[in-house]
Design a protein around this nucleic acid. Structure first.
Length: 545
RNA sequence: GCGCCCGUAGCUCAGUUGGACAGAGCACGAGCCUUCUAAGCUUGGGGUCGCAGGUUCGAAUCCUGCCGGGCGCGCCA
């Protein structure tokens, strides 16, 4: 696996760490202070410089001094570093660092040299993460309700891979239980009829029906570019004896008992009767109620099988992530409780994706399962394209409600981030083609000293990409990539538009091959970041539009 | 009744896990362009970050309590 070099920010953080160690050795700083909160970041306001650190503010209290005094100790040593032009104390104790311009020129060169590896990191250190997503019941083709989870899960998995985790993409097939059999059978037959196909011989039994449904689902997901490594079967989990094993473990920990649950709350329960059940003590981990393991008829509950399934995942992974629909809100705590009980630590994060409302020119598209008038995933992908669906699904936080308007998402305008980002990449691709074709004597090497302050500002934004990837991966929030790409595209377009008023600011200057070459390098670097970010999202980087 | 999520500009939403005067797009105001560097550009106005306390050098961000929305709450999956 290719890995990017240590980022600019990490490099300076390491230098800063050395300085702190030296101060300790010299007796100027109390030893043993936790340095975790120390950060080296780009300042919000670019006029403050290239880098800023909060070290003085964060450490002052424990060092028994005030931020200002500590900053005055640090600043001269930071200023003595290579590449540092100045280190000034500002505000409550920030240290603002200005770097030699060559740092950014070198960073641009690094972006171009590392290519698609730029932005990859070793943050995950090969830790094994299991991402479970989609996991729709195999009762019919994918509809739009499943779409967002599919994209969020897939992009999250890809994001974690870029950040150095070993990722497994998994789909949990709910193929156990009599009801699923009935549902699957009827839904499958109806689907075949709807397609006008000959039904022929009726599929025999649960297994074949479910298998056929899964093939349909895989095909639907493939149109979105979504592929799983593993399809785990609930039926197999139950038949393998994993459920017994899981609850033997939990019983040994004293977390299983026989008891009676209180009546359900919220709505009046006419048919409710108290009964003795085998229960899991999920309240020990923050759930509001203990959860049944066996039904009255002695069979396992869904929760019991799910617990065993998570145990299986834990055997192969260090961390688990489930991407679920918001209608599963109520089951999050019990599942996390089971995982914590089995793993000995909270190892499950659940991302709940909110509903997507389908609109067409502002009008709500009505969907009703009963009338069979739901909009399928395949239909939407066919109408607007895979890239538009994927990008749009990542323009909101997963837990925020979203509108998907067929008219707006295909609009070719600045309001549409999908278009705006792809257009930036296409524009750069077009520029590269034209430069080669139209500018004579284009040098092979770019002289980046020709880039001015404004152009280097764009590099500075591009150089934040590795940080964005890491922070998005840590937060399990792939949408951050989409927002960042929107910002980068906007900055690039703005610079490009300078050429409208001032032709000397254009990227392509037929009579100035040297400057054209330098600006071409800048554009290539931006294009590379856009491509790398889009790759995480699973969206094609358009060469032309 | 309980749990989870949310409340940021007129609208739709970001906000780098506690940082420096709270951001973007739309809409609104004012200029510019009519350009094969095309599907506009530049530039303004606009916010008690739901309310009230608390934690500390510092809070939209963390804690508590309210107000107001959404979702979910049986051995269903």
């Amino acid at each position: 696996m290719e890995q990017a070099d240590v980022t600019l920010y990490a490099r300076f953080a390491a230098h800063l760490d050395d300085i702190l160690t030296a101060l300790e050795a010299e007796g100027l700083l109390a030893p043993g202070i936790d340095r975790k909160p120390v950060a080296v970041e780009p300042p919000r306001d670019p006029s403050h410089g290239d880098l800023a650190t909060n070290a003085a503010m964060v450490l002052a209290k424990k060092a028994g001094t005030n931020p200002r005094a500590l900053a005055e100790l640090l600043a001269p040593r930071l200023e003595a570093m290579d590449d540092v032009v100045s280190a000034e104390i500002a505000g409550p104790g920030f240290i603002n660092i200005r770097l030699d311009r060559d740092v950014w020129r070198d960073e641009l060169a690094a972006i171009v040299a590392e290519g698609h590896a730029y932005g990859r990191s070793t943050l995950g250190q090969g830790q094994r993460v299991n991402v479970e997503y989609v996991s729709a019941n195999p009762t019919g083709p994918m509809h739009m309700g499943h779409c967002r989870g599919a994209v969020v899960g897939d992009a999250l998995a890809s994001l974690l891979e870029h950040a150095g985790y070993a990722v497994t993409r998994e789909y949990y097939v709910n193929d156990a239980g009599a009801q699923v059999d009935v549902l699957a059978r009827s839904a499958y037959l109806r689907y075949l009829e709807a397609l006008g196909r000959q039904i022929g011989e009726i599929p025999e039994g649960l297994y074949r029906t479910v298998a056929a449904m899964i093939e349909l689902i895989k095909a639907d997901l493939a149109t979105l570019g979504v592929h799983h490594d593993l399809f785990a079967s609930e039926r197999e989990v139950q038949e393998s004896g994993a459920v017994d094993r899981a609850f033997e473990i939990l019983a040994e920990k004293g977390l299983v008992y026989t008891g009676t649950l209180p009546p359900p709350k919220g709505k009046p329960a006419e048919d409710w009767e108290p009964s003795e059940l085998l229960l899991f003590r999920s309240t020990a981990f923050g759930d509001d109620q203990d959860r049944p393991i066996r039904k009255l008829d002695g069979s396992w509950t869904y929760f019991a099988a799910d617990t065993a399934y998570h145990m299986q995942k834990l055997e192969k992974s260090d961390e688990l992530i489930n991407v679920w629909g918001a209608d599963h809100t109520g089951t999050v705590k019990r599942t996390q409780a089971a995982v914590q009980a089995l793993a000995g630590r909270p190892a499950l994060d659940v991302k709940l994706v909110q509903m997507v409302r389908l609109l067409r020119g502002g009008e709500l598209v009505k969907m009703s399962k009963r009338s069979g008038s739901f909009v399928t995933l395949a239909e939407v992908v066919e109408e607007v394209g895979k890239d538009v669906v994927r990008f749009t699904m990542l323009t909101r936080k997963n837990d925020a409600q979203m509108d998907f308007d067929f008219a707006k998402v295909v609009e070719a305008s600045k309001d549409n981030p999908v278009f705006y980002v792809q257009y930036a990449h296409a524009r750069i691709s077009s520029l590269k083609r034209k430069a080669v074709a139209e500018v004579p004597d284009l040098p092979a090497e770019a002289d980046l000293s020709l880039l001015d302050e404004e152009e280097l500002g764009l590099v500075r934004l591009a150089a934040q990409f590795p940080r964005i990837v890491d922070s998005a991966a840590l937060a399990h929030e792939p949408h951050r990539i989409a927002f960042y790409l929107g910002d980068l595209a906007a900055a690039f377009h703005a610079l490009w538009n300078r050429g409208n008023d001032d032709p000397s600011r254009r990227f392509l200057l037929v009579h100035n091959p040297l400057l054209t070459r330098a600006r071409l390098e800048l554009a290539s670097g931006i294009g590379q970041i856009l491509a790398n970010g889009l790759a995480i999202m699973g969206v094609a980087a358009a060469e032309e539009m």
